[in-house]
Simulated scan of single mutants.
Amino acid sequence: MYISISPQKSGGHYASSSADYVRYLEKENEHRLDEEKENFFNASHDDILPESVTKDIDGNTAKLKTSEARFYAITINPSARELANISTKDQLKDYTRELMKSYASCFNREIDGGAVQPSDIKYYAKLETQRYFKGTDWQVKENQPYASQILALKNQQRKIDRGEEQGSITKLQKQIDRLEQQAPHKINGLRISQGMAKPGNQSHIHIIVSRKDASNLYGLSPGSKYKASEVMMNGKLVKRGFDRDRFFASAEKIFDQKFQFQRNYVESYASRKLFLKQPKSYMQQLAKLPTAQKKLAFQILRQSGLRIPAIPTNQVQLAIKSFNQLRKGLKTAIKSSSIGY
Rank of each mutant, 00 (worst) to 15 (best):
I5W: 08
A15G: 01
S16D: 02
S17W: 06
D20N: 12
Y21N: 10
Y21M: 13
Y24C: 03
Y24T: 06
E28P: 02
E36M: 12
N42R: 00
A43Q: 03
L49W: 03
T54V: 13
K55F: 13
I57Q: 07
G59D: 02
T61Y: 07
K63G: 10
Y72S: 06
S79G: 04
S79C: 01
N85I: 03
D90C: 13
Y95P: 08
E98L: 15
A104E: 03
A104T: 01
F107G: 00
I111M: 11
D112S: 15
G113L: 08
Q117A: 10
A125N: 05
A125C: 11
K126V: 10
K134A: 15
V140Y: 05
E142Y: 12
Q149I: 02
Q149L: 09
L151S: 12
K154F: 00
N155I: 07
Q156K: 09
K159H: 09
E165Q: 10
E165A: 12
Q166A: 11
I169E: 07
T170E: 13
K171R: 12
Q173M: 15
Q175L: 14
I176P: 11
D177Q: 12
Q181A: 15
Q182S: 13
A183E: 13
A183R: 06
N188G: 13
Q194F: 11
Q194P: 10
K198R: 08
G200D: 07
Q202V: 03
S203V: 00
S203P: 03
H204A: 02
I208D: 05
D213L: 04
D213M: 03
D213H: 02
S215Y: 01
S215N: 01
L217S: 08
L220R: 00
S224C: 01
A228W: 03
V231C: 07
M232I: 01
M233F: 07
K236R: 00
R240V: 14
D243R: 08
R244D: 09
R244S: 14
R246C: 09
F247V: 04
A249H: 08
A249Y: 06
F255M: 01
S268Q: 10
S268P: 14
S271F: 05
R272K: 06
L276C: 12
L276F: 13
K277H: 12
Q278S: 14
S281W: 10
Q285G: 10
P290C: 06
P290H: 02
Q293Y: 10
K294V: 13
K295I: 12
A297V: 04
A297K: 06
Q299R: 05
Q299G: 12
R302Y: 06
R302W: 03
R307L: 15
R307M: 14
R307E: 15
I308Q: 04
A310T: 03
Q315D: 09
V316M: 10
Q317R: 06
L318F: 14
L318I: 07
L318T: 00
I320W: 11
I320R: 01
K321V: 09
S322C: 13
N324K: 00
N324Q: 11
N324C: 05
Q325E: 14
R327G: 03
R327K: 05
K335L: 09
Y341C: 04
